[in-house]
Simulated scan of single mutants.
Amino acid sequence: MTFSTEDYEDVISPYEDPLIINPIIGQNKIWKVMVDTGSSANILFHKTYCKMNLAGEQLEPCNEAPLYAIGGHPIQFEETITLPVLLGKLPYTAEKLVKFYVVRIESPPEDMPGLDPKTATHCSNVQPEAKPVKQKKRTFAVERQKVIEAEVEKLLEARFIEEIEYPDWLANVVVVKKSNGKWRMCVDYTDLNKACPKDHYPLPNID
């Protein structure tokens, strides 16, 4: 895999974004696959597998040792599947049979307490001329307020977040009801996103 000078246009250094490719896996166009050169396994999330309509492709039981994710959390492999993977565009293509480990991952914060910043750290490329924005505090209905308090307490106990007294940027949380009736708490990063360079290859989820 090579890169030309055109690929480096609009790239802000230091460049720490993940490498994303869109191969054809088992006759399915997969739009976003994250490439991790340090990974010891090819992971296929079960929810993605279910969307691929792999008629006739059989999952094989797996009794191998578990995979250890960030923070040392073990993820037990349940099944594997071998699929053809096509990369590139004509006339420059390559196809190979790849063994995937099918996993079901739902990791709440309490499963990864106190994640060391040396393991994973996110940095926002804020434009130097951008002025910090402190959003005005929003009020919520009683039901949503209880959801927010419970979620914040859970994140504090897991040491995923910490309290600060004098923030430069301040964003409100947003509570959204999911299709299963449960609530999801998000953060309104609208102002911060406006102050950062546009990502031409956004990553809403990892296939």
Rank of each mutant, 00 (worst) to 15 (best):
F3Q: 05
S4K: 14
S4G: 14
E6C: 13
D10N: 15
D10M: 06
D10C: 03
V11L: 14
I12L: 13
S13R: 09
S13Y: 04
S13D: 02
P14R: 06
D17Y: 00
L19Y: 03
I20Y: 13
Q27Y: 10
I30R: 00
I30G: 02
I30Q: 07
V33D: 07
M34W: 00
M34H: 01
D36H: 04
G38Y: 11
S39A: 14
S39D: 12
N42D: 02
I43Q: 00
H46D: 06
K51L: 08
M52R: 07
E60V: 11
P61K: 10
E64L: 00
E64M: 03
A65Q: 14
Y68A: 03
A69Y: 06
G72A: 13
H73S: 05
P74D: 08
I75P: 00
E79F: 08
E79G: 00
T82Y: 01
T82R: 12
T82D: 08
L83Y: 02
Y92I: 00
K96P: 02
K96M: 12
V98W: 07
F100Q: 03
S107L: 11
P109N: 05
D111E: 11
D111R: 12
M112E: 10
G114M: 10
L115K: 05
L115R: 05
D116M: 11
P117G: 02
P117S: 07
P117M: 01
A120E: 03
A120K: 08
C123H: 10
C123W: 12
N125V: 00
P128D: 12
A130W: 06
K131E: 14
P132Y: 06
K134G: 10
R138E: 12
T139H: 09
A141T: 15
V142E: 15
V142P: 08
R144P: 10
K146E: 10
K146P: 04
K146W: 01
V147Q: 05
V147K: 10
I148Q: 03
V152P: 00
E153N: 14
K154V: 01
K154L: 11
E157Y: 08
R159W: 04
F160K: 09
I161A: 02
I161D: 05
E162K: 14
A171E: 12
V173S: 03
K178P: 06
K178A: 11
K178R: 15
K178Q: 15
N180P: 06
N180D: 15
N180R: 11
N180G: 09
R184M: 06
C186R: 06
V187G: 11
V187A: 14
V187C: 12
Y189D: 10
T190Q: 05
A195Y: 08
P197E: 13
D199M: 10
D199H: 03
H200D: 13
I206V: 12
D207E: 10
